[in-house]
Design a protein around this nucleic acid. Structure first.
Lengths: 151, 151
DNA sequence: CTGCCTGCAAAGGCTTTGCATAGGT
DNA sequence: ACCTATGCAAAGCCTTTGCAGGCAG
């Protein structure tokens, strides 16, 4: 939309190349799917994806959407997340490690740099850490504004 | 099992009283359900709960389990959590604020005190924070041992 | 041309809902 | 006695699977 136009293109290319490198066929739909996630500011449900794809491919079916979401997740291009109202997907961040603030209304995500694991000490040291999760939920500036206005 | 026998009883009482105070009937099954969660060291799936309840009440039905899990969640007695393999429940911690380490194998949870929000500064201050989530995933001492032994 | 990808249809899980009966208050 | 909670059955999602035809490589 603004000046990240370039990185969106890059992201699509990266996803497509990942698919191709694993021997998957690059269909129009899969390219569109990659573009959809590259541009999405937040999480998308299978239904969101279906609705969105249907505008361009009226005959698209739910099972194809599910198949590709699943495959893209298994391959690490997308990441799954259970928000309160079900399973959602977003492009996985391949850049440096960071965490997100997630808007409870529009589900847009905003990255921030602080990682609690750096500060963390004296845990029981016999617990073998594999990964972690840290998210802050709330309302983004736009949604917070709306809510304040209508209340 | 050991010396937290007392607090388990207390927890059951607390849950039962919460139900009663909202005008709900205290059936044997609901009391058992409360006991089940008071004693559970980690997360339970609806199926786990069903299997467990069935031992005591062979005629129990899945829909009753779901109904009560839902009601207890809405009332704040239980909390829901999507682990990788589906929706799970556990008794909500009513004590002081803390976070958990969660074992990827046995799904047992272990509390710890560190909260990243205390350390957190310079987030975009126009994001209106509502709540947050911080979990560390890995293997608990027992499961880590098993894994090391069998590998 | 070959074999994966798609759309269709149907099945599979998990969860919810409607109704008559059992049971708490 | 009243009214909620339960069990049964069926329906409702959401997601996956099997199959024949279409399309990328």
């Amino acid at each position: 939309m603004e000046n990240h136009e370039h990185s969106v293109q890059e992201a699509v290319q990266e996803m497509v190349q990942t698919m191709a490198s694993k021997g998957w066929r690059i269909t129009d739909q899969r390219r569109s799917l990659a573009a959809l996630f590259a541009e999405a500011p937040g999480y998308l449900s299978p239904k969101d994806v279906y609705e969105s794809m249907r505008q361009k491919y009226p005959g698209v079916s739910f099972d194809t959407v599910y198949r590709n979401l699943r495959l893209l997740s298994e391959m690490g291009v997308l990441e799954q997340f259970y928000l309160n109202d079900g399973l959602k997907f977003r492009a996985r961040c391949h850049s440096h490690h960071h965490h997100h603030m997630i808007c409870l209304q529009c589900e847009k995500t905003m990255p921030f740099e602080f990682c609690p694991m750096k500060q963390l000490s004296h845990l029981p040291d016999d617990f073998q850490i594999v990964n972690h999760r840290f998210e802050i939920f709330g309302y983004c500036p736009e949604c917070a504004g709306e809510r304040a206005a209508t209340t």
